[in-house]
Design a protein around this nucleic acid. Sequence first.
RNA 1: GGAGGCGUGGCCGAGUGGACAAUGGCAGCAGACUGUAAAUCUGCCGGGCUAAGCCCUACCGAGGUUCGAAUCCUCGCGCCUCCA
Length: 390
Amino acid sequence: MALRFEVLAACGAARRGRLTTPHGTVDTPAFLPVGTAGAVKGVPPQELAASGASILLANLYHLALRPGIDVIERLGGLHRFVGWPGPLLTDSGGFQVWSLGHLRRVDEDGVTFRSHLDGSPLRFTPEGVADWQARLGVDVAMALDECLPWPVTREAAEASWRRTLGWARRSREAWRGPGGLFGIAQGSAFRDLRERAAADLGRLDFDGYAIGGVSVGEPAAERLAAVEWTAPALPASRPRYLMGVGYPADILHAVRHGVDLFDCVLPARNARHGLLFTRHGVLRIKNAAFREDPRPVDAACACPCCSRLSRAFLHHLARAGELTASVLATLHNLRFYLDFMAALRQAIELGTLTELTAMFAIRSTGEDPPDDPHPGSDPESSDPREKRSP
RNA sequence: GGAGGCGUGGCCGAGUGGACAAUGGCAGCAGACUGUAAAUCUGCCGGGCUAAGCCCUACCGAGGUUCGAAUCCUCGCGCCUCCA
C-alpha cells in the first residue's frame, strides 16, 4: 500500500492522525493549500513550506490543459516541475464538471470538456484521469467524479451517484500510480443518498475517502449536514477528506465529525481580495479604518507580514494595487490556516478542542453568518474594526 | 495686436434644445468570495425627505431667447493654441 494512515489520538470523533506518502508525512487534521496550476497564486513553493504546509493540491484539469501531462512527465514529474518535494495531491477535474458546467458534456463513460482557454475538446475518463495522475507521480490521486450543482432533484442526484460510483470502481481498477487513490462520495443534500454513497464507496477499498459536492452554493446547514451524514459512514481506518471547505468554523465542525483533510481557495483568494484572517476575527485591509493603523495584522502571527509590517503598510499596498500586497496577504492567511490546523491537532491530543473557538475568533458552527448590519460590534472583540469570522 | 478653441459633479471625460441629477473611467465608501476561467465581482457615490416616488440645488459667472437650456444668444471672467 502506497499510503499509510495511523490515528494517533482521538477526541470524540475528532482524530489526530498521520498520513505517510511517498514524498513525506502529513500530520492530520491537515489543510492543503490550493495550487491549481502548480503553485498557490502569489506564493513560491519554498515560502509555502515555511508557512507550515505539508501537502499541496494541484488540479489535473488545469495541468492537462496547460502545460499538458506529457510536458510535465518529460520534465520529471509534477514534484520536480513545480518545485515542491513534499506530498502532492491532484484533484481529478470533477470540480470543473461543476465550475465549468457550461463547457462540458457528461456521459456514462466520462466527461468531455471544451477548453476554457481555446475551446478545444479534452476527454476525461476514469481510466484516463487515473493514468494522467500516475504519470504525474502524485502522492494522492482523486478518482474522477461528477460534482453536482445545487440544488438538484433526488432523481438526478441518485442517477449521478450511480454513475460516479461506476467511475470510482473503474478508477480503482485502473490505478497504477506510485501514490494512493481516493474515492469521492457524493449524494447532494439527501441523507440516505449520502449515507449510501459513503457505504458504497467504502467497499471499494480506496486509500482515502473524500466528501464531495459541497461548497457549490448550498446553504450552510446543508453543507454541515452532508458532513455529518457522510463522515461517520466512511471507513474509519482511512483518511477522510472534505473537499473545498472552508472557513475555520467549517473545518472545526468537520474535524469534530472525524474529517482529516481539507483544502480551500479561501485563504488565498480572500487574501488577494483584501480579506485577512486573524485571531481576533476577519479584517478587510482596504477599509479606511486601517490607513494609519501601525499594528501588525495579527500580533500573534509569525508570518513574514506580521513579523515586521504594519496594517497601514498593507492597506497602502493593497489600495495601490501592488502585487506585493497579494503576496504578503496570502502568506499571512495561509500561515493563519496552517497555525489553526496545528492548534487543532494539539487540541485533539490534549482534549481541548472547545477552547479553539475563542483562540481563533470562531463565532459558531452550524449557522449561516448572521445578517448583522453592524459587524464588528461583538463585545468580545478588542477592536471594533476586527470582525468575527463567519 | 490678429485668428481660433475651450471651461460639465473630488479628478479625467461624454453629452451640443426636451428621454439629464447628467454615459464612462478613476478616486472614495462598503460588501461578497468555500475540490480557483477570480490581483475578481457587486452595491453606493450633489443634498433633503412621510424614500422603487417626491422636493431642492446643479454643467465658470450674469443676463437673455424658448413651453423647455449643460446644450442657442449677449456680456463678463479664466485657460489654451496658432499668427504677428
